[in-house]
């Protein structure tokens, strides 16, 4: 039985795809985005133990197998996350597919499907494939929220079990993409084209950070890319500083004077559904 590293499970989510969904956030990501909202999902715990002594409830203990987290004692004050210099969390659980579904069992009658997010879900593609298969067995849809760094052609089983993906196009420019995420955007863009062509792209998203990214260029490029696929929606996301660490911490939230022209651009380029949030 495969096991997955689960950062968090949200039984009801209104913001992770169509309808009401259970969202499963996996641990581990191959990007290090400067505007990451949940940087504690990026790396696996190194077991350094720094958080253990700071836990006010004694919910963390250091053992040979690493840090143990007692959820019953935890007050979710997030001090452990703040003190971690390694962009990780001691609250990651190793779970089987059955355990995940046991946790969302009560939510199942009320959801359209599940969305596996991250972290980057394709890094645990075997586990995710199992989750998707089980979701379908329950008559639920299976969505992936992905950074697009893994070529979906190279993980055909996951791609087959997945109904649709939600994919970030963070930047259309390779150098800017590397500056922002630490990786190039070639595979991301190739994935957008591929997934759209097989009818498995639900939406693309771009986070707008004026003064830091060339948002106009990216939106222009990405909207042209998906325009031939009228069912693919484009979500333009205002940068917000919640959870962000580093140089972008104090950047402002862009207002409508920034967002509306970008929306108009995407519509003009032929995208049918554009949402600003």
């Amino acid at each position: 039985m495969l096991k997955g590293y689960v950062n968090r499970i949200i039984p009801f989510s209104f913001v992770d795809g169509p309808g009401n969904r259970s969202a499963v956030f996996l641990q581990g990501c191959d990007f290090s985005c400067k505007y990451c909202h949940n940087p504690e999902t990026i790396n696996m715990c190194s077991g350094c133990g720094r958080c253990v002594e700071l836990c006010p409830r004694g919910a963390l203990t250091l053992s040979k197998e690493g840090i143990k987290w007692n959820s019953g004692l935890c007050a979710f004050c997030d001090r452990c996350l703040k003190v971690c210099s390694y962009n990780s969390s001691p609250r990651v659980r190793t779970m089987t597919m059955e355990q995940v579904f046991e946790e969302i069992r009560e939510a199942l009658p009320f959801i359209e499907g599940i969305t596996v997010s991250g972290g980057e879900c394709t890094k645990q593609n075997g586990f995710v494939t199992e989750l998707f298969r089980e979701a379908h067995a329950f008559g639920k849809t299976a969505f992936a929220d992905t950074n697009g760094e893994t070529d979906f052609r190279s993980i055909p089983e996951l791609t087959k079990e997945m109904d649709k993906a939600m994919l970030d196009i963070k930047s259309s420019d390779a150098r800017e993409h590397i500056m922002l995420t630490g990786s190039s955007n070639e595979t991301v863009i190739e994935n957008a084209r591929y997934l759209a062509s097989i009818g498995k792209l639900y939406e693309i998203r771009t986070v707008v950070v004026p003064g830091f990214l060339d948002n106009f260029r990216t939106v222009d490029f990405a909207s042209r890319l998906i325009a031939p696929y009228p069912e693919v929606r484009y979500k333009l996301i205002r940068f917000r500083k919640w959870g962000v660490r580093g140089p972008l911490e104090e950047f402002p939230v862009p207002d409508d004077s920034v967002m509306e022209p970008l929306k108009e651009l995407a519509l003009k380029n032929g995208v049918k559904i554009v949402e600003v949030i």
Binding site: V15, F110, E112, E275
Partner: peptide, 14 residues
């Protein structure tokens, strides 16, 4: 409001 389908899913389940 941006995802009324979520409320419909909940109603159908209930």
């Amino acid at each position: 409001k941006r995802n009324p389908k979520a409320v419909l899913d909940i109603i159908k389940g209930a």
